[in-house]
Measured scan of single mutants.
Amino acid sequence: MGFKLLSKLLVYLTASIMAIASPLAFSVDSSGEYPTVSEIPVGEVRLYQIADGVWSHIATQSFDGAVYPSNGLIVRDGDELLLIDTAWGAKNTAALLAEIEKQIGLPVTRAVSTHFHDDRVGGVDVLRAAGVATYASPSTRRLAEVEGNEIPTHSLEGLSSSGDAVRFGPVELFYPGAAHSTDNLIVYVPSASVLYGGCAIYELSRTSAGNVADADLAEWPTSIERIQQHYPEAQFVIPGHGLPGGLDLLKHTTNVVKAHTNRSVVE
């Protein structure tokens, strides 16, 4: 069995187990497998329904001669939608809004960016022009300005110390501490036991640490421990890039980060 097929099978099995364990909360999309990078042309966006009122959005972007996937989250909030992270750029984010209108038909009224990198804030200006209120932590807003990236308009308070959590509509926002970046936030959907790890969490097929220019490698494993301790009931975990899975993604990420750190020390 090929690795790609095995990865998709694991996603399907995880979703099936969740649907059985929580039949009222989960209505997993039966329309197909989780979209992969090879299936999404740059400039297009796919939506994948995880649970009743919960979707991931998947886009792709060219970077350094390669094409990478990027995940975000959409959560229903009454007759409105909360968006977590842009679709990595203005063109993708405009396509995301169009796809949401086509498939869901509810307005996106608020959006949260989970850290300051372009795959999370690139497209904020498109959201703002569409009347979406954009939010991020003060740290993310400051770092985005320093980096020359787009800056969300509103500040999220109460997320300055490791372990801080605040309720934001249908989700809980959690600051686990520094990891992929010093400002990275985690998003949890309690009604569906869905954990969105953003770039602080890796997919299972990833074996290298990737972009760690703004990471705190020493603190990252401790931050992941905080996530595990705060959300032990999480059933569906979405990484910032690639295929979702279960809580095993947290341990896998820790292993990859520690291996990278150990290699760096040896070198």
Rank of each mutant, 00 (worst) to 15 (best):
M1T: 04
M1F: 02
M1C: 03
G2T: 10
G2P: 09
F3N: 06
K4E: 13
L5I: 08
L5N: 14
L5D: 12
L6N: 05
S7G: 06
K8L: 07
L9N: 06
L13K: 06
T14M: 14
T14I: 12
A19E: 13
A19R: 07
I20G: 07
F26L: 11
F26D: 15
P35L: 07
V37S: 08
S38K: 10
E39M: 11
E44M: 10
E44W: 09
R46V: 13
Q49M: 11
A51K: 06
G53H: 07
V54A: 10
W55T: 02
S56Y: 08
H57L: 02
Q61V: 11
Q61H: 09
F63H: 10
G65F: 07
A66G: 10
P69E: 10
P69Y: 15
S70C: 04
N71L: 01
L81C: 05
L83R: 01
L83P: 01
I84D: 00
T86L: 02
W88R: 00
A90L: 10
A94P: 04
A94C: 11
K102R: 11
L106A: 14
P107K: 14
P107D: 08
S113T: 14
S113V: 14
H115F: 00
H117G: 00
D119P: 01
V121F: 02
V124P: 04
V124G: 08
D125N: 15
D125V: 09
V126D: 05
A129F: 05
A130H: 11
G131R: 08
T140W: 02
R142C: 14
A144P: 04
N149I: 15
S155P: 06
L156M: 10
E157P: 15
E157S: 13
G158C: 04
L159I: 09
R167I: 14
R167P: 06
F168E: 03
G169S: 04
E172G: 03
P176G: 03
P176F: 00
G177W: 01
A178F: 09
A179T: 05
T182C: 05
T182L: 11
D183K: 00
N184T: 01
N184I: 03
I186R: 01
V187S: 04
A192Q: 07
S193H: 05
S193T: 08
S193V: 06
V194C: 00
V194T: 07
L195A: 01
Y196E: 00
G197H: 01
G197Y: 00
G198A: 05
I201S: 03
Y202H: 05
Y202W: 12
L204Q: 06
L204N: 10
L204H: 15
S205V: 14
S205K: 11
N211H: 15
N211Y: 07
D216I: 12
L217A: 15
A218P: 11
A218E: 11
P221M: 11
Q228M: 15
H230S: 09
E233Y: 11
E233A: 13
A234K: 03
P239F: 01
G240W: 03
H241Y: 04
H241R: 02
G242N: 03
L243I: 15
G245K: 02
G246F: 05
L247P: 05
H252I: 03
T253G: 00
T253I: 03
T254N: 15
T254K: 08
A259R: 08
N262G: 08
V266E: 14
